[in-house]
Design a protein around this nucleic acid. Structure first.
Lengths: 167, 167
DNA sequence: TTGAGTGCAAATCCTTTGCAGGCGG
DNA sequence: CCGCCTGCAAAGGATTTGCACTCAA
């Protein structure tokens, strides 16, 4: 399972420096949280609660309040992307350089999600931003569908059990 | 300001019949809520709280609980679309036949939204659904951008004041 | 040293739900 | 009539915040 760890040690340290440069303190809590996202398989996302549970398992001893505060901070500085799958809570995923733009399919029946890559969507958004004189920040496409109970094991991610998958 | 009212009286009555046929009761509360969405300018969306306030102003005397229950019902039967703009609450808009697929631009700075039409996005989603053997239900594209404080009066919708606009 | 960051618990906000009474079909 | 719907108020769940203490720079 490919993850960000092997290739991005440098990028991670660069990010720490960047954040310090922007006046943020690089606490062990923030570092732990960032590391978890870097070590996550490509395209996988976590809710605040899931992240907090992982931190607990690692004995990182980070409070839920700090988890929420850190997620919010990382979103505001462009390190994480906030996703909404029409559930009662948000999900978060890493934004890393040289990521291939990807988007989400959500099964309205079973609630699982799958990712797919689509440079076309990105191009389209760039065209629209140019037309409308907007500074493009992020693009998110959600396809709601019924997966008809096919391909669950291979393509879809189960949020609550954090099952991994190979698209 | 174009709205659904003039053209869709029949569609509205047809919908009532359809819902009744599906075993739902057409109460005055449900009718009032549906009417509000039909009378809303094209492409405009409401939060539960905004909808409830409009109902109050019209002396419809509908409780917040029923407002939420009805929104949820209409989403589940495909009458309304649930939107998320990374705020702390959802928004809802009417899904009506012969609607031109439209999507949303959200200004990360001021929080306002604008709609734009894009048949390309729809086509792309249909292609992906076909490839992956999914039954396509809905497509939502969100473009996060900075509007640089331009065109607020003409293109962007202010959620909380429900200011209307002409895209 | 110092004020940004943290943990804890209480608070807040949005949304859901239990229950008794109301009314659509 | 029957049982789906409603209003009310209380509950629930996710997220935020006040406060005193800690520690990164």
């Amino acid at each position: 399972m490919k993850n960000h760890q092997a290739i991005d040690i440098d990028a991670r340290e660069k990010l720490f420096q960047d954040l310090r440069g922007r006046g943020f303190r690089m606490t062990p809590q923030r570092e732990s949280i960032l590391n978890i996202f870097y070590e996550l398989p490509d395209g996988e996302h976590l809710s605040a609660e899931e992240l907090h549970q992982i931190l607990q398992q690692k004995n990182a001893g980070i409070s839920l309040a700090t988890t929420y505060r850190t997620l919010k901070l990382f979103v505001s500085v462009g390190v994480l992307r906030e996703l909404d799958f029409s559930e009662d809570h948000k999900h978060y995923e890493l934004i890393h350089e040289n990521e291939v733009p990807h988007h989400h399919i959500i099964c309205v029946d079973c609630g699982k999600t799958a990712e797919f890559e689509s440079p076309e969507v990105q191009k389209l958004a760039e065209k629209i931003a140019l037309e409308k004189k907007l500074q493009l920040i992020d693009v998110q496409l959600k396809i709601f569908a019924n997966c008809l109970h096919m391909d669950h094991d291979t393509s879809f991610q189960d949020h609550d059990s954090m099952k991994t998958f190979t698209p």
